[in-house]
């Protein structure tokens, strides 16, 4: 019965345990920890847009007297850090796996890259003619709206409920912020957007752990 010296599992229960252990170990190794994919972005939005609101508060004077350049610099640095963390975590998990998943991820990445370049090139041409507060609203509402739309699309591609719901949430709060106006938009995006990303990261991690439990 045996083809070689590879012994059969001792009994059915051992075989089932072996299957489940191996499948969950593989899934754990081939999927990055969801917290690494969500939380750095959540922190970037919370801190970056939070500082922006504190410095460029609606009304006459700033809540906190920060240098003008600080909020955007912090935002961009934190976004870059989040991107780097995501890239490293994904490379570790998905590296050396090729095929449909890799292609999906790559094309989705292209959509982000090419989409951003196109959108921001247009904005750059317009925003120089706008007053500072409106230019800031235009940029951030467009960037946040773009993020929400692509996250919904990502949810559709991977049938990922968490990502899709996050996209819906971000699209809705972006709308609310845009209606509320310059300054307030940054507050809404920082608290509801950044906070929302942190919450979804925790939920996605919990779902992941349940799935990966043998």
């Amino acid at each position: 019965m045996n083809l070689d010296d590879d012994p059969p599992p001792t009994d059915a229960a051992a075989a089932l345990r072996l299957i489940e252990d191996q499948q969950s170990a593989t899934a754990r190794r081939l999927n990055p920890d969801a917290r690494l994919l969500y939380w750095p972005w959540g922190v970037a939005w919370l801190v970056g847009f939070g500082l922006f609101f504190l410095r460029f508060t609606p009304g006459e004077r700033a809540l906190v007297d920060l240098p003008n350049w600080l909020p955007l610099t912090v935002l961009f640095v934190l976004l870059a850090v989040a991107g780097a963390i995501q890239a490293v975590a994904s490379k570790r998990a998905y590296g050396q796996v090729s095929g449909d998943s890799a292609r999906r991820g790559r094309w989705y990445g292209y959509a982000w890259a090419l989409g951003s370049v196109g959108v921001y090139a247009g904005l750059g041409r317009i925003s120089e003619h706008l007053p500072h507060d409106l230019a800031a609203l235009l940029w951030s509402a467009t960037a946040v709206g773009f993020t929400g739309a692509l996250e919904m699309a990502g949810g559709a591609i991977w049938l990922d409920r968490d990502l899709f719901r996050l996209g819906v949430w971000i699209s809705v709060i972006n709308l609310i912020g845009a209606i509320a106006g310059p300054g307030w938009h940054a507050l809404v995006v920082a608290v509801a957007g950044g906070g929302g990303i942190l919450v979804v990261g925790a939920l996605a991690r919990r779902r992941q752990r349940q799935r990966q439990q043998p």
């Binding site: 191996q22 499948q23 593989t26 899934a27 081939l30 050396q96 796996v97 090729s98 095929g99 449909d100 998943s101 890799a102």
Partner: peptide, 8 residues
């Protein structure tokens, strides 16, 4: 445990 159409 790999995704559909994936190779390792």
């Amino acid at each position: 445990a790999l995704g559909d159409g994936d190779k390792i």
